[in-house]
Design a protein around this nucleic acid. Structure first.
Length: 436
RNA sequence: GUGGAUGUAGCUCAGCUGGUUAGAGCACCGGAUUGUGGUUCCGGGGGUCGAGGGUUCAAAUCCCUUCAUCCACCCCA
């Protein structure tokens, strides 16, 4: 069997590229206007970078899902499973804490997780990531959330649901975990097996259970948001007040939860109903303390990421098309061998202004026009012995069928004029269509 | 790691309970049309029927194994 693309990876074909490009360009524009600057970091890092950002979590699963390997020099490296750790590593390495704070950085590119594949979940996938580093103000939390929403809006994606919650400060989390243990331990026999395990290791995650009877048990309980300390509560209220005053639509999610320990206070997710079971387009949160964990200054930060594949899936489902392929203006047809180098040279000069393609072997007019048609070009430009004798070319509009002889010297002006006109309506005339 | 569905031409699929040489549409190539395309008509090339094994006179079809894809569970930075 010949090998196909590796499980969980796929090819982005030429016809898909405009969508991808348009998405990245839109994100760059929206974020750029907010003063967020682009940073590109390597796709792999020393494994400690991700181990430190992720590793002290109770969930060892997370580590199992990282692509970690040893290079020829014996270095342990990890393909990035997310952007935050690498971006913060770069932030620290380049002393960016000396820049005006907060430092706002966005990135885009592939990331890797050794997960099982399903809709919206791949082993190599793509994210757009944004980090606002060095500010603890609730206004930054609100700005981060608003920016994420703004990007979706600029993409023309309807139907997004923004959920905002808070996991509180570390004290709050401990208190909440203790609360869950206290309330649920007497009823542990009624919990599902995995939930019993979670009760022991990481009670917070119980809230994620999809088991119906679990949810029945959990329903009457307080949520993290209900038991926030006064400071975290005030912070949360400031965030929601800012979002409200900016007109950013969101709903408060009392039970929002993060899997990793470094998250503090604000946590948020954006969901979309039309993309299968993995309905989260993106999400993020505040990670005060993470920077210090990575050996940097003790600065707070907040960030988010969204999954490019999922957003494109959602856009497709909503019928929102994104990006267009540039149409070839003219396809140059050599009608005899002598014309081949002539059209090649001509194409090179015309390309200064337009997208131009041409044939590489002599064709009769029938085949040549078919080639031109299939290239998607607006015009076919024919060059053969008759045209040569007149120092001209024949230019045929492939939609209307009209054709004219144009002197070589006049061709640039002619093409410019056509390019400035809207594409002529109507499918080409039938049969004859040929000017005599 | 677990479960379900699906694997037949480049693509989308048909092929019923086993029975001649495995089909269609689209796509591709050629001709009708040797200086005029996209429509139409005619013709053509393309397949280890995912792979391996088994049952049978006979397997795309039934059985087993395996691989892959999709969806879901698990998990989710």
């Amino acid at each position: 069997m010949r090998p196909g693309a590796v499980k969980g990876t796929y090819d982005i074909l030429p016809e898909d590229q405009p969508r991808w490009r348009a998405l990245f360009e839109t994100a760059a524009r929206v974020l750029g206007r907010a003063g967020v600057e682009e940073i590109t970091t390597p796709v792999f890092e020393h494994r400690e970078v991700f181990d430190k950002s992720v590793g002290d979590s109770a969930d060892l699963v997370v580590q199992k899902e990282m692509y970690t390997f040893q290079d020829r020099g014996g270095r342990w490296l990890t393909l990035r499973p997310e952007f935050t750790a690498g971006v913060l590593r770069a932030f620290i390495e380049h002393g960016m804490h000396t820049r005006p704070l907060p430092v706002k950085l966005w990135s885009a590119g592939p990331a890797f997780r050794a997960e099982n594949v399903q809709r919206g979940r791949f082993r190599q996938f793509h994210q757009v990531n944004c980090e606002l580093v060095g500010g603890g103000s609730a206004l930054l939390d609100a700005e981060a959330i608003a920016l994420l929403v703004d990007v979706f809006a600029a993409l023309g994606l309807p139907g997004v649901h923004v959920k905002v919650g808070s996991v509180g400060d570390p004290d709050d989390r401990e208190r909440y975990n203790a609360y869950l243990r206290e309330v649920l331990s007497p009823q542990r026999e009624q919990l599902s097996e995995t939930s019993r395990e979670r009760l022991r290791l990481n009670p917070l995650r119980l809230l994620d259970s999809k088991d119906e009877s679990d949810q029945m048990l959990l329903a009457p309980l307080h949520r993290p948001l209900d038991l926030l300390g006064p400071e975290a509560r005030a912070h949360f209220d400031e965030v929601t007040a800012a979002l409200g005053s900016w007109g950013v639509p969101f709903e408060v999610d009392r039970s929002i939860v993060r899997g990793l320990d470094y998250y503090r206070r604000t946590a948020f997710e954006v969901h979309h109903a039309g993309i299968g079971a993995q309905s989260a387009l993106g999400g993020g949160g505040r990670y005060d303390g993470l920077l210090a964990n990575l050996g940097g200054p003790d600065l707070p930060g907040i960030g988010w990421a969204f999954g490019v594949e999922r957003v494109l899936d959602a856009l497709h489902g909503e019928g929102a098309e994104l990006g267009e392929r540039e149409q070839t203006l003219a396809y140059l047809v050599p009608l005899d061998p002598e014309a081949v180098p002539e059209v090649a040279r001509l194409a090179r000069t015309l390309r200064a202004e337009h997208r131009i393609e041409h044939g590489y072997v002599a064709r009769n007019p029938g085949k040549g026009l078919r080639d031109a048609d299939r290239s998607g070009a607006r015009l076919a430009v024919l060059r053969g012995s008759r045209e040569r004798a007149a120092s001209a070319v024949v230019v045929k509009d492939l939609r209307s069928g009209e054709q004219v002889s144009v002197a070589l010297d006049d061709l640039p002006a002619h093409l410019r004029a056509v390019a400035g006109r809207p594409v002529s309506e109507g499918t080409a005339t039938t049969s004859g269509g040929l000017a005599r």
